[in-house]
Design a protein around this nucleic acid. Structure first.
Lengths: 264, 264
DNA sequence: CGGATCTTTGACTACGTTCAATTATTGTGG
DNA sequence: CCACAATAATTGAACGTAGTCAAAGATCCG
């Protein structure tokens, strides 16, 4: 059981410690959250909503000022194209924030759908305003999370812009692995990968056929193993070499919390 | 001469009205900025820096807590790959913010270089903190700008993920056109396009050769005209149709300021 | 158990790459 | 202001990665 240490806090809420939302797992190394900050974080998690697997969460042009914090399951952001094609822009894993800019730009340009059954906390814009206005530390943490989203998209651009299919697949698998690891959803080198090859193809700008053949090659090279959506990255070292993968931005997030650089 | 209307403001700074920074051009429809907000915006523009064409501004792994607001010229964010390749992630045009998350994650994951001679205002993290803490309206504006950056990257992902070379080039040209238009850097259907075909190729995940042939096809179809880096989008309607281009996120930014939705 | 969805495989095609060489443009120093 | 070097644009030809079409298995789920 993870215990969040809260300096001179009277607000040791039961729900907080017993069922730590994944977003807060990222914050767990922070030693100096004050009671007000904790209260605010809890408020941001007070309102829950669930979506069934496959359901659309936001549709393009929908208007919604709330953002969602994923507490369980996977979702993805995407665009449908006129020719029937689809491009996946990013994945939302536990602890990620869906539509973090909703308070300022309430009309979403992209759709978001649930990959698995999904549970989210609804975060009202007031809480975010309050967060930035009264909790500078949390403001920086929120900004760091935004920065991660930004970096993740930048990685996606590099992947599909300048890498071969073989590298793209490898790189994406590694990114998912390390992101899940950060919130405790991996087991050694394995994790649950609840996506179809069709979705992966639409993520990496490949055809399903080629996606399948590329995964086959990775299996053949004894680098990965997949059975019933459980994937094992057998040789992570080698995979990282193939994909030129660096976990830059995730490392930075970890360091930020561990060394509390930002609190200086 | 654009005049920024400032409600009951005593702070009608000369430099502010006479040489309006492009970032503020985006805000120009806002009727109700208070003097403190104006002062803060000016402070964010007080410290200037210039970079010569081609010079590197941030290099990967550099540490810098300041962000830069572009006031003149173009820059781009990119990654170099081991094989000598390069992927451009995004462009920074006048009014754009370079490294907007620097305050939280000071180590940059990507490099930024100047395309033209570049002038920027250096924005210290304190000002951003102050902005969010004391000027909720500006905080939302800043968030809206971040949202634009996010949307722009999402568009880039869709472009290179699921569009043909012909569409990619068209789509990028349109995006640059509309972004420049927002800050007054277009003239009818023309604008200055200070990039090499090699840079465009590295933006769109194409080879230089194919980039060249694609531009040729667009010229042949009488859709664009280029001479000495001045480009004319002869038939914007048609180009938008080809690229499936929608200026979604830019429209929203404009609407935001015009209707002041966010100030309700 | 049966329909739907997903995965896998084969054969053929094509969009874009690579290599190589030529022409044009730009920038700089004499 | 011209000469020359460097950079950028253009064109040709051959090749290859990934796409398309099609059909057969496998798996999931009610």
């Amino acid at each position: 059981m993870i215990q969040l240490k809260i300096s001179n806090s009277t607000a040791t809420h039961k729900s907080f410690n017993n069922d730590l939302p994944p977003l807060l797992k990222k914050f767990v190394h922070l030693q100096s959250l004050n009671p007000d900050a904790v209260d605010l974080l809890l408020k941001m998690h007070a309102l829950k909503k669930t979506f069934a697997k496959g359901k659309i969460i936001y549709e393009q042009d929908n208007i919604n000022k709330d953002c969602f914090i994923v507490t369980h399951g996977w979702a993805y952001r995407y665009t449908d194209l006129y020719d029937g094609g689809r491009q996946v822009i990013s994945y939302y894993l536990p602890g990620d924030i869906i539509n973090p800019f909703a308070s300022a730009i309430p009309k979403s340009n992209y759709s978001v759908a649930a990959i698995t059954n999904l549970r989210v906390s609804i975060c009202k814009p007031e809480y975010l305003m309050q967060l930035f206005a009264t909790q500078p530390k949390l403001g920086l943490l929120y900004t760091a999370l935004l920065s991660c989203g930004d970096a993740s998209m930048a990685e996606q651009i590099v992947r599909i812009g300048r890498r071969s299919a073989y590298q793209r697949v490898t790189h994406l698998l590694l990114e998912l692995y390390y992101r899940l690891k950060l919130v405790g959803y991996t087991e050694n080198s394995t994790f649950y990968l609840p996506v179809t090859q069709s979705l992966l193809a639409d993520t990496l700008g490949l055809s399903v056929v080629h996606m399948n053949r590329t995964l086959y090659k990775l299996r053949l090279a004894n680098l990965i193993k997949i059975r019933s959506h459980k994937i094992d990255l057998i040789n992570i070292e080698k995979l990282m070499e193939i994909a030129e993968y660096k976990c830059n931005y995730l490392e930075q997030l970890k360091n930020m919390f561990e060394h509390e650089e930002i609190l200086a």
